[in-house]
Design a binder for these strands. Sequence first.
DNA 1: GTGGATTGTAAGTGTTGCTAACGAATAGGC
DNA 2: GCCTATTCGTTAGCAACACTTACAATCCAC
Lengths: 158, 158
Amino acid sequence: MIKDKFADAVTAPPPDDGEADIGAIKDILGFHIRLAHGACLRHFTETFTDLDLTQKQVSVLWLVDDHPGIAQTDLAQRLRMDRATTMAIINRLQAKHFLRRDRSDKDGRKQALFLEEPGKAMLARAKTAIGEHEAWVKSRFSDKEVRQLIDLLSRIHE
Amino acid sequence: MIKDKFADAVTAPPPDDGEADIGAIKDILGFHIRLAHGACLRHFTETFTDLDLTQKQVSVLWLVDDHPGIAQTDLAQRLRMDRATTMAIINRLQAKHFLRRDRSDKDGRKQALFLEEPGKAMLARAKTAIGEHEAWVKSRFSDKEVRQLIDLLSRIHE
DNA sequence: GTGGATTGTAAGTGTTGCTAACGAATAGGC
DNA sequence: GCCTATTCGTTAGCAACACTTACAATCCAC
């Protein structure tokens, strides 16, 4: 099984320990964050194959729904993305008619984003799928541990 | 400040709560994992601009050092990567003369991977940089919290 | 030996992140 | 009001990864 081999990777001690080493790879916090994220992303992608949406795309739909008329820059800052990267995502979502850009009245430079009907419908389906996905992630934790984990992770992304 | 805007994104309640909603985006564990990973990756990339190495590349160097003669498939399984993806990474590292491929004696299909001298030197520098990076991540936690976090994350990637 | 599985490789696609540059619009100092 | 600096959206290009399919070489079981 892949799982066993992997556990081995995190468990296996280095063959030599003579030199000044900063420790085994399994003690590197960043390593665990990366792997946990990878596992999460993998399951997310599986869950969303039918809907054909990525994590980023769902996050954008969700935030536009929560903040109708939000500008792209605002969105980028909230999701810690580049302006250019945000563009690419918005383009894909717009091509699917999930949202539209309206020139902002107050600031001619900005594009106000609004969900279109297909986008709202898709977001509703996406939220259900996220529910399943979350259940999968949370299945290995107690409620208290989930709160703990969110608290600890929040401190990393501030 | 970006930080404030971002905190707002995680904190701001949705304007309407009438329909059957699965909760605010800030309660989605996957969302926090993604953001924490992003923050981590960003800092890692900054720390490693001089060395011109990515997280994956460092992981590969580290594992090849820990397991001299390891095969690419083995590496891929340990890091949860695709065979093809592993190829690309090994190619880049080989182009920099950080490691070499030797046809395995025991199995003619396999390529045994070994660090070259430049690779060993680079790994030593990388481990120092990882030390700094880890210090940055861990600065916001107590030792106990670090252990907790690693334990919780480990349960996600098994 | 033959057939099936494994391993590395190659080629192609898609998503995401970055940079640099540009025009359009705004905001602030004067 | 006017000029300058900044912001916003946009385009283009580059790099890293993850995925797929296909293929040749090798190994193993029978």
